[in-house]
Amino acid sequence: MAFSSLVLAVSQLLLGQWQFYKMIYQGQEMPPRDSNLVLQYTFEESGVSRLKWSYKNDSKFHCERIGQFSFDESNFYDKVTWVNPDNSVQCGSDPDMQLGRISQVPYSIVEGDLFTKIPLNGEVIYYVWKRIE
């Protein structure tokens, strides 16, 4: 009962729209590599997730997909169920934009920010997202 309450609490924390705004690599905080990048992840109460990114200085470029997500206390699992057919051609090379792809992402919510853990050449980089909605 206590565990399910905890999971429920975590899910409510995860729900909403998040925007990537910094990363942590080798203990150092860094801004996004491209300051024009707008990378957003949305988790809806219905279990639908939406991942999209674009660039402020390039109105033609955008990648977007929808998924079905579930989670436990430490990972969320996201299966891509729809990829925007109007996506830029380059999006297709990204596994996160490929139909049917299932990803398992370790996450944590600390002081209101969403931390996601991403492998990088045997090391780890944390993407940090702030809630925007």
Partner: peptide
């Protein structure tokens, strides 16, 4: 602040 990393799971994907 930078070193205050979250306690993310040990389990890797």
């Amino acid at each position: 602040k930078a070193n205050a990393l979250p306690d993310l799971p040990v389990d890797e994907p």
